[in-house]
């Protein structure tokens, strides 16, 4: 595959497990060697350059902390290896510890830190060497949902402050959509689509992307977004006849499973307000139609493919 990452952007490599995103990231880093092809950073061909000379920063899913070193020494490592003067190291480390807000933990050991704190340390460590590219391999994968949310927001803010070209690998589409400027969808070693998150959500290139980036349901042989279905009780407004099978409350949205008189079952997604207005219960007869603003490829619903990818 061929991929270009714009300078200063935060690009997410997104896709299901085993698809090759981490491999790609490690190839960019120099931790893996590609069978064929080249890597260029800043216009410079770094394909044959070993990882330590590429000027990249890498964050691992399990943080890879240097367990026998304090937080401060961890962050200072890259600078110590480069034999920077002691004062420079100290001031830069302090700066970074403040930036990632673990300055109060500077003299602790990684084992004494929480997962989120460890990952922030890892980020500080990677940033210390002023990398040209920052590579993050599922950085929040090992964390609790709540911590993950917090760190996502924090990463976005950090990126806006320091605009290092960043490439993030994740299998969580919510995370990718929230954090990245650009999405690269990778599935089984192939590039499915590249673009801005919102645009890709609205105009997926194919069925896989549609289904991966958000909820999907099959309507008249085409894949559409469940929230593009309109459910109402008025037969005059048109649409298909359907029976409500189940109503599930998912927090801020309501999911209504419907069986159609003709065709496969479908589900619609309504906001709480709309659902309350509609006031349906299992067994009710309703009418279902596609909203005018429904989106898919080129603005039209995506056809269900006849063969699997």
């Amino acid at each position: 595959m061929t991929l270009e990452v714009p300078e200063g952007s935060l690009t997410a490599l997104l896709g299901p497990s085993g698809g090759g995103k981490s491999t790609l990231l490690r190839v960019i880093a120099g931790l893996e060697v590609p069978d064929a092809g080249t890597i260029e950073i800043d216009g410079e061909d770094v394909t044959g350059v070993p990882v330590r000379d590429r000027g990249i920063g890498f964050c691992f899913q399990h943080y890879a902390p240097f367990r026998h070193l304090t937080v401060r020494r961890n962050v200072a490592f890259g600078l110590e290896v480069r034999r920077r003067p002691k004062d420079e190291i100290r001031s830069r480390v302090d700066e970074l510890l403040d930036l990632v807000r673990i300055a109060h933990l500077a003299d602790r050991y990684p084992a004494q830190l929480s997962g989120g704190q460890r990952q922030r340390m890892a980020l500080a460590r990677a940033l210390a060497i002023e990398p040209r590219v920052l590579l993050l391999d599922e950085p929040f994968g090992a964390l609790d949902a709540q911590v993950r949310q917090q760190l996502r927001a924090w990463l976005r803010q950090l990126h806006e402050k320091i605009s290092v070209t960043t490439v993030l690998v994740t299998h969580d589409q919510e995370e990718a959509m929230e954090v990245a400027d650009r999405l690269v969808i990778i599935n089984e070693g192939h590039l499915e689509q590249i673009g801005a998150p919102a645009a890709m959500y609205d105009s997926p290139a194919n069925e896989f992307v549609l289904k991966f980036l958000g909820p999907a349901t099959l309507w008249r042989g085409r894949w559409i977004r469940p929230h593009d279905l309109v459910v109402h009780r008025d037969p005059d407004l048109g649409g298909e006849r359907a029976t409500v099978e189940r109503v599930t409350h998912l927090g801020f949205e309501i999911r209504i499973d419907l069986s159609l008189a003709a065709g496969s079952p479908v589900w619609a997604q309504l906001s709480r307000g709309s659902a309350a207005e509609l006031d349906v219960a299992p067994g009710d007869q309703v009418w279902v139609a596609l909203s005018e603003s429904a989106a898919g490829v080129d603005g039209s619903p995506v056809p269900a493919s006849t063969h699997r990818h």
Binding site: D53, G55, L99, I129, E130, R132, I162, V164
Partner: peptide, 16 residues
């Protein structure tokens, strides 16, 4: 916050 903007070239380690 006095934050230095990362230099574009990065800090190289010894290649030899």
């Amino acid at each position: 916050m006095g934050l230095s903007v990362p230099a574009l070239g990065g800090v190289p380690a010894g290649r030899g």
